[in-house]
């Protein structure tokens, strides 16, 4: 029953988030700030993870399928497929849920416990819209770019690891990453990314917005934001994959 209560309240909150903004100019400015805070400032961790994950995927693929019957381009092919289909959109989104989600919940949660949200409400500002909408828009706009960058870097990381260690030749890897390329897979990945961006921002904002108590509760909300975002992402990942790829 508790879960139904949360789901109901979650959708009610979204209703407020998506009601008409008081001043577009102010929302615009807030969105730009959020793009910087939630998007651009995540670039470093995304880049680092992607290069190393790509490298590891490549090495593992090679060591696991080392057989004369398997064509040499398969390593590059496997690295590309796992990067585009799963690693970049899903794993990076899970990482972003940890980084961005906890930031959002902690920021909104501490505004709640310090009565700053009450102060917004008292002024007649739609506090949910003002605080949350710019974050949703920022992530929906910027996360696809982060994921595309992640795809390139992961495949590049694989290339570096494969060629430097001599596991795969440059020509074979490049042949592999071009082999049987299906642009729809990128579309699928980007659809997932956008859905995950919405999940991360709205679920985390929900936990922050309904924090009550003190700093301890802000910490709890922050943790819950990450856990629930992750769970919902995993469920949606399964559902989207079933509907979009089958």
């Amino acid at each position: 029953m508790r879960i139904l209560y949360h789901i109901g309240r979650y959708f009610q909150l979204q209703g407020e988030v998506f009601s008409k903004p008081e001043r577009f100019g102010i929302y615009w400015k807030r969105t730009i700030e959020e793009i910087d805070l939630l998007g651009v400032k995540s670039l470093g961790i995304v880049a680092l993870l992607s290069v190393f994950m790509g490298a590891v995927i490549t090495i593992q693929t090679k060591t696991n399928i080392d057989s004369p019957f398997i064509p040499l381009y398969v390593v590059g092919f496997a690295a590309r497929q796992s990067t585009i289909l799963e690693f970049s959109p899903t794993i990076i989104s899970l990482i972003l849920a940890g980084k961005v989600g906890s930031t959002i919940a902690a920021e909104i949660g501490s505004m709640r416990v310090k009565e700053q949200i009450d102060a917004l409400d008292i002024m007649g500002v739609n506090s949910a819209g003002y605080l949350i909408l710019p974050k949703i828009i920022a992530c929906v706009v910027i996360n696809p770019f982060l994921i595309i960058i992640s795809m390139f870097l992961s495949i590049f990381g694989g290339y570096m690891a494969g060629t430097l260690s001599g596991l795969v030749s440059s020509a074979n890897y490049i042949e592999g990453i071009q082999f049987d390329f299906n642009a729809y897979h990128v579309t699928y990945a980007l659809i997932k990314t956008v859905v995950f961006a919405i999940i991360i921002t709205t679920v985390s904002a929900y936990h922050g917005y309904y924090t009550s108590g003190g700093t301890r509760e802000v910490g709890i909300s922050s943790t819950k934001a990450v856990v629930y975002s992750d769970v919902v992402i995993l469920i949606m990942n399964y559902l989207l994959t079933q509907t979009l790829l089958l």
Binding site: K114, D118, A119, I122, M123
Partner: peptide, 20 residues
């Protein structure tokens, strides 16, 4: 209508509640 009235309210909170 509540928002309309609230735009005419000024409030100082006991905790000040400034936006950090």
């Amino acid at each position: 209508a509540k928002r309309q009235i609230r735009q005419e309210i000024g409030m100082l909170f006991q905790s000040s509640a400034l936006f950090d």
